[in-house]
Write a protein that binds this DNA or RNA. Structure first.
Length: 834
RNA sequence: GCGAGAGUGGCGAAAUUGGUAGACGCACCAGACUUAGGAUCUGGCGCGGAAACGCAUCGGGGUUCGACUCCCCGCUCUCGCACCA
C-alpha cells in the first residue's frame, strides 16, 4: 500500500507524472484514519533502565463535553515534545486522564435527569475520541478518571494518613460562599471576588469545614521555589507573593485592669515607641470579654454588626471607608508603659497575624488616616535621613530612618533597632521574633454531591472517627438519579449519613462534605506512574523511576491554585513515604490563550472555533501545524482561518513534491556538484536550527519556518540530483514528524523509506558541513550599510578591509575622506569610520 | 497602590544575545496556466522617492564605530496581588 490511501481525488501515481487536470491534495481523512488505527496500541511505555526517562505531561482536562482550541494547542505542544524526545532516544511517559469530579456534571445531570457519572463518562468517551483524532501519542493504558473509586480510594487513604499526622483539621471560619454553586470555595478559587467556575459574587459565611494545614509547609514551599529554575519567573514570583512571608515580632500588650493580653504581630518593631492606640479585628475573640458589662458594650456590638453586614454587601475590590470605635478599654505598651486606647477597626483582618494591630499613625498610612479621623495622637519615632518629623506631619512616613524618642534605642538605624527591640522583648518575656505568612490553610470541604467523600464518621461518644482503611473507598450513593433529586448533596441523604461508629459500634453520622476537586488534581501526575496499582496511591519503585515530571505544560491560569497545591501534595506524599522527590515539575511551560478577534474564545462572545469542524475541513496535521506555527507557545495565539489554509497549503506542496520523488530509495551518491553541496549544507543547517529551536525553548514556530525555508530552496533548485532531493525530503519529514505525524508517516512510506518515521533516530547535523564556504559581508560607512561583498569564509581581516575600501559604493559613500578607523566583525561586517 | 511582563510592516511574527531590522507565513498587487479560479505556479510587497538616497523597532535623552537589544526619563497595554500590620 504505497499509494492507495495517499491519493484523494488524484490519480495518485507516484513516479512523477502529475496529471495536468488533477488537483493534488492529500487525502488527510484516509491517511489520518489509517495511522490512528495503527497507533492505538503504540506508545505503551514501561520502565526501562537502558534509556534515559522523560515524563512529559499536559494538564489533564475537565470532561466538559468537547475539547476546545486551548486543549488542541496544549496537547499538540505536549505531543511534539513527546514525539521528538522519543526520536532522540528517551523512554517517554506521556499519559492522559480526566479531572472528572466537579460541579458542571451536577448541573448537566439535573437538567437531563441522569447520573453525573453517566454524563461524565459519556463526555470522556467523546473527548477521548477527539484526542485520538488529533493523533496524540498517549499511552492510553494509563488513562485515569478521578471520579473512579479506584482512584479516589487512595486519596481517601492519604486523607486519613494526613489526618493522623495532624495535617488535616476541622474548624469554624468565615469562608467564601458561592450562593449559586451552594458551596464553599478556597481563597485561591475566588477570582475578583467571584466564583472561579460560575463567576457569581462570593459572600463571606461562617461555617465549619475541613482544612489542609498547608501553612505548615509554607517555608519549604517558599524555599524550594529557588529550585524551580525551569519554571517561568512570573509563576515563581506569583507563588512567592502568594505565600507572602513577613518577618517581624510578636508582642503582648497587657490589658489594663485585666489579666488578658493582646498579642500583636508587627513587621516594624522599630516603630513600637510610636504606638498611640491598638486596633482589633471585629471578629477578635477577646472583644467579647473586653466590653462585657461596660457602658460601651452596646455601641461596640452595634458597630461589629454594622461592619460585618457591610463587609458582606460590599463588592469585591471596593474598600470600605476606614472606621472604628473605642472600646472604652486600654492596654499597656510593654516597652513604654504607656496606656493606649483599644479600638475596633473594620480594616483589621482576623485571618492575618493575630487579628490585632499595634497602631503607629506616624509610620503607617492606614493608622495615620484612622488617627486623623478619630483625633488620636501621632508620635513620630523614626526619622528619615535629613528630616525631623513632629506630630503635625502631613502623611505617614513609612520608610526607614534613625530612631528618636525611643528610650534606649534612640539613635539606632531602623534595621539594627528592629533586632535590638526584638531581643529586648525576648529578654523581658513579652515578645519574640516571629514569621508570618499570607498563605492560609486550604479549605477542602465542599457541600456538593459530585466529589470524593471525606472518609470520616462523627460519633456522639467517640467524636471524630476515621473510616477504617479496610472500608475504603467511601463511595457516593447512586440511588435516586432518575428523579429530579439527582445530585442532592450528601447532607440531604439519610441513607448515606447513617453509619456505625467504627470504635464503639453505635449509630453515628457520616461526614457529608466532599473534597475540593483540586485535591484529585494535586497528585494525578504521580498516579500515572502506576495507574492500576491497588495497594496505595503509587507503586513506589515506578514513581521513583518516572518522577518528577520533566516537562509540565498548561495554562498560566493555574499558576497559583493547582501548581501550589501539587507542590504541597508532593511534599506530603514524600513525608508519608510514597515519593522520594521534593518538587513535582522540573520544567513548566505556561502556554498562552487561544484568542480570536482579540478576545479569548468563549461562547458568550460567539468567537469559538470548533476543533471537530477544523479537523473535518483540514485534517489534524494541518490544525496541529498551524497552532504550532502561528506563535511561540508561551504567547497568546491569534486564531486566523487564513493562516490555517497556509499550513494546509504547505503540507500539500510537500505532498506533491514527495510524489515526484518516487518510491525507490537512491543510495548511490551523485557526482559532486555545487548544487548538491549547497543542499547538503542547507540540510545540516536546518537540522541544527530545528533541533535547537525545539530543545532550547520549544519555539516550534521558528522550527517550522526553518523547514519551510529548506523546502523553498529545494523546490527552487531545478537541477538538483534526485539523491539530494530525496535527502532533503527525508530530512523534512523527520523534522516535521513530531508536528504533523500522520502526514509524515504516510510520506515516509510513500518514499519507500524503511520503517515508521516516528521510530527513526532524530537527524544529527555536522557542524563542518553546515559551515558556509562563501559569506556575504556587509560593509558600512559610519555605521550605515553601503555595500555588500561576497567573500570566501576564511578571508583574513586585512584583505577584507582592502576589498571594502576598493568597493565603488564605499568610495562614493566616503566622499573622498580617509578612513580613521575600521571595525571588522568576523563573518559579519566591516565598518569604516571616517 | 505593590509586583511581573510586553510595546517591531496592513496582520501573526523573526533577528545566533551589541553587528544586514522585518526570516517564515497571512493578506494584498501584478503576471502565467485556465471555461472558471476560492486550485497551482512566477514575481513584487516597511514608509517616502524615478533614482541616488532619506526615514523607520511606543516617545525623549544617553553610552557605542554600530542599539529592537545596554543605561536614564516618560507614555501605553496586559497579567497577578490588593486593607497582610
Amino acid at each position: 500500500m504505497t499509494n492507495g490511501t495517499a491519493s484523494g481525488t488524484a490519480s495518485g501515481t507516484i513516479n512523477g507524472i502529475v496529471s495536468a487536470t488533477a488537483v493534488h491534495k492529500y487525502d488527510f481523512r484516509a491517511i489520518e484514519g489509517k495511522w490512528q488505527a495503527r497507533w492505538l496500541s503504540d506508545n505503551r511505555t514501561d520502565e526501562d533502565a537502558a534509556k534515559p526517562k522523560y515524563y512529559v505531561l499536559e494538564m489533564f482536562p475537565y470532561p466538559s463535553g468537547r475539547i476546545h482550541m486551548g486543549h488542541v494547542r496544549n496537547y499538540t505542544i505536549g505531543d511534539v515534545v513527546a514525539r521528538s524526545k522519543r526520536m532522540r532516544g528517551y523512554n517517554v511517559l506521556h499519559p492522559m486522564g480526566w479531572d472528572a469530579f466537579g460541579l458542571p456534571a451536577e448541573g448537566a445531570a439535573q437538567k437531563n435527569h441522569m447520573h453525573p457519572a453517566a454524563w461524565t463518562y459519556g463526555n470522556i468517551d467523546y473527548m477521548r475520541q477527539q484526542l485520538r483524532q488529533l493523533g496524540l501519542s498517549y499511552d492510553w493504558r494509563r488513562e485515569i478518571a478521578t471520579c473512579n473509586p479506584k482512584y479516589f480510594r487512595h486519596e481517601q487513604k492519604m486523607f486519613l494518613e494526613m489526618y493522623e499526622k495532624g495535617l488535616i483539621y476541622q474548624k469554624v471560619t468565615t469562608v467564601n460562599w458561592c450562593q449559586h454553586c451552594q458551596t464553599v470555595l478556597a481563597n485561591e478559587q475566588v477570582i475578583d471576588g467571584c466564583c472561579w467556575r460560575c463567576d457569581s459574587a462570593i459572600k463571606p459565611r461562617r461555617m465549619s469545614g475541613w482544612f489542609f494545614r498547608i501553612t505548615s509547609y509554607a517555608e519549604e514551599l517558599l524555599q524550594d521555589l529557588d529550585k524551580l529554575s525551569g519554571w517561568p519567573e512570573k509563576v515563581v514570583t506569583m507563588q512567592r507573593n502568594w505565600i507572602g512571608k513577613s518577618t517581624g515580632m510578636a508582642c503582648d500588650f497587657p490589658v489594663t485592669g485585666s489579666d488578658a493580653k493582646i498579642s500583636i504581630f508587627t513587621t516594624r518593631p522599630d516603630t513600637v515607641f510610636g504606638v498611640t492606640f491598638m486596633s482589633l479585628a471585629p471578629e477578635h475573640p477577646l472583644l467579647d470579654t473586653l466590653v462585657a458589662g461596660t457602658p460601651q458594650e452596646k455601641d461596640v456590638r452595634a458597630f461589629i454588626d454594622e461592619v460585618t453586614t457591610e463587609k458582606q454587601q460590599l463588592n469585591y475590590g471596593e474598600e470600605p471607608e476606614k472606621k472604628g470605635i473605642f472600646t472604652g478599654r486600654f492596654c499597656e505598651n510593654p516597652f513604654t508603659g504607656d496606656k493606649v486606647p483599644i479600638y475596633v477597626a473594620n480594616f483589621v483582618l482576623m485571618e492575618y497575624g493575630t487579628g490585632a494591630v499595634m497602631a503607629v499613625p506616624a509610620h503607617d498610612d492606614r493608622d495615620f488616616a484612622f488617627a486623623k479621623t478619630y483625633g488620636l495622637p501621632i508620635k513620630p519615632v523614626v526619622m528619615p535621613e535629613g528630616m525631623i518629623l513632629d506630630e503635625n506631619m502631613g502623611e505617614a512616613s513609612t520608610g526607614p530612618g534613625v530612631l528618636a524618642d525611643s528610650g534606649p534605642f534612640s539613635g539606632m538605624e531602623s534595621e539594627a533597632a528592629k533586632q535590638a527591640i526584638i531581643a529586648h522583648a525576648d529578654a523581658k518575656g513579652f515578645g519574640h521574633a516571629q514569621i508570618t505568612y499570607r498563605l492560609r490553610d486550604w479549605g477542602l470541604s465542599r457541600q456538593r454531591y459530585w466529589g470524593a467523600p471525606i472518609p470520616i464518621i462523627h460519633c456522639e461518644r467517640c467524636g471524630v472517627v476515621p473510616v477504617p482503611l479496610a472500608e475504603l473507598p467511601v463511595e457516593l450513593p447512586v440511588d435516586a438519579y432518575q428523579t429530579k433529586d439527582t445530585c442532592l448533596p450528601l447532607h440531604q441523604r439519610p441513607e448515606f449519613i447513617a453509619a456505625l461508629c467504627p470504635q464503639c459500634g453505635q449509630a453515628a453520622r457520616r461526614e457529608t462534605d466532599t473534597m475540593d476537586t483540586f485535591v484529585e488534581s494535586s497528585w494525578y501526575f504521580a498516579r500515572f506512574t502506576s495507574p492500576r496499582y491497588e495497594d496505595g496511591p503509587v507503586e513506589k519503585e515506578k514513581a521513583a523511576y518516572w518522577l518528577p515530571v520533566d516537562q509540565y505544560i498548561g495554562g498560566v491560569e493555574h499558576a497559583i491554585l493547582h501548581l501550589l497545591y501539587s507542590r504541597f501534595f508532593v511534599k506530603v506524599m514524600r513525608d508519608l513515604g510514597y515519593l522520594n522527590i521534593d518538587e513535582p515539575f522540573t520544567n513548566l511551560l505556561t502556554q498562552g490563550m487561544v484568542i480570536k478577534d482579540g478576545a479569548k474564545m468563549s461562547k458568550s462572545k460567539g468567537n469559538v472555533v470548533d476543533p471537530d469542524e477544523l479537523i473535518r475541513q483540514y485534517g489534524a496535521d494541518t490544525v496541529r501545524l498551524f497552532s504550532l506555527f502561528a506563535a511561540p507557545p508561551e504567547r497568546d495565539l491569534e486564531w486566523n482561518a487564513k493562516g490555517v489554509e497556509g499550513a494546509s497549503r504547505f503540507l500539500n506542496r510537500l505532498y506533491r513534491y514527495t510524489l515526484e520523488l518516487g518510491s525507490t530509495p537512491v543510495t548511490a551518491l551523485p557526482p559532486v556538484s555545487e548544487a548538491g553541496k549547497a543542499m547538503e549544507r542547507r540540510i545540516h543547517q536546518t537540522i541544527k536550527r530545528v533541533t535547537e529551536n525545539i530543545e532550547s525553548n520549544f519555539h516550534f514556530n521558528t522550527a517550522i519556518s526553518a523547514v519551510m525555508e529548506l523546502f523553498n530552496s529545494l523546490s527552487d533548485e531545478a537541477s538538483l540530483s534526485l539523491y539530494w532531493r530525496r535527502q532533503a525530503m527525508r530530512t523534512i519529514l523527520l523534522l516535521l514528524s513530531p508536528m504533523s505525524p500522520h502526514f509524515c508517516a504516510e510520506m515516509w512510506q510513500a518514499m519507500g523509506e524503511k520503517g515508521d518515521v516516528a521510530a527513526q533516530d532524530w537527524p544529527v547535523w555536522d557542524e563542518a558541513i553546515a559551515q558556509e564556504e562563501r559569506l556575504t559581508i556587509v560593509v558600512q560607512v559610519q555605521g550605515k550599510v553601503r555595500s555588500r561583498l561576497s567573500v570566501a569564509a576564511d578571508i583574513d581581516d586585512d584583505r577584507l578591509v582592502v576589498m571594502a575600501l576598493a568597493d565603488e559604493n564605499i568610495i562614493r559613500a566616503m566622499a573622498g575622506k580617509t578612513a580613521k578607523k575600521t571595525v571588522v566583525v568576523k563573518k559579519k561586517l566591516v565598518n569604516i569610520v571616517c
